[in-house]
Computed example of a mutant assay.
Amino acid sequence: MAMRNPYARFNQYKQNNIMQASPEELTLMLYNGAIKFINQGILFIEQKNIEKTHNAIMRANAIINELNATLDMKYEVAKGFRPLYDYISDRLVDGNISKNVDALKEALELVTELRDTWKEAMVIAKKK
């Protein structure tokens, strides 16, 4: 008898949410994912688990790089995000190389501010 994946329904639910999400909601999901992985990186540094630290930070950095790569530079605001995403990525790399919690906390603070601002913008846009 084949063993079923106990998380299959949950994974299907997550997949459906992603497929049905608006671009604005997808961006919010990316910010939340980056925050989750940075927090994991901090936790794993404290636990001295080098491999898990590296993997979590790499996942967070991949999200930031995706956000950076998908900026539409025809908008002036996007030009302001590029150096910010680059800086966050640099802090993540520094934190990963040196296992520096302070660098990760700085990145976490910036990503959290971006996420919170994005959520506010989504609320304002829905009112219009």
Rank of each mutant, 00 (worst) to 15 (best):
M3N: 11
R4V: 12
R4E: 14
N5I: 07
P6G: 09
A8M: 07
F10E: 04
F10H: 10
Q12G: 05
K14Q: 14
Q15N: 08
M19S: 04
Q20K: 11
A21K: 04
P23W: 10
T27D: 02
L28Y: 01
N32G: 06
G33Y: 06
G33I: 07
F37P: 07
I38M: 04
I38H: 00
Q40R: 10
I42R: 00
L43A: 09
L43C: 00
F44W: 08
F44S: 07
F44M: 10
I45F: 06
I45W: 05
E46A: 10
Q47Y: 09
N49D: 15
I50F: 09
N55V: 05
N55I: 07
I57S: 11
M58C: 13
M58P: 07
M58H: 12
A60E: 11
A60V: 10
N61K: 10
N61A: 07
A62G: 14
I63S: 03
I63E: 07
L67M: 08
A69V: 02
A69L: 08
L71P: 01
L71F: 06
K74I: 05
G80H: 15
R82Y: 01
R82D: 01
R82S: 06
Y85A: 00
Y85P: 05
Y85T: 01
S89Y: 01
D90F: 09
R91M: 13
L92T: 06
V93Y: 09
D94E: 15
D94K: 07
G95W: 00
N96K: 14
I97T: 14
N100A: 13
V101E: 13
V101L: 06
D102H: 05
A103R: 12
L104W: 11
K105Y: 05
E109Y: 01
L110Q: 04
V111M: 15
T112C: 04
L114V: 02
D116L: 06
T117Y: 11
K119F: 03
E120R: 14
V123Y: 11
I124P: 02
A125Y: 02
K127C: 02
K128A: 10
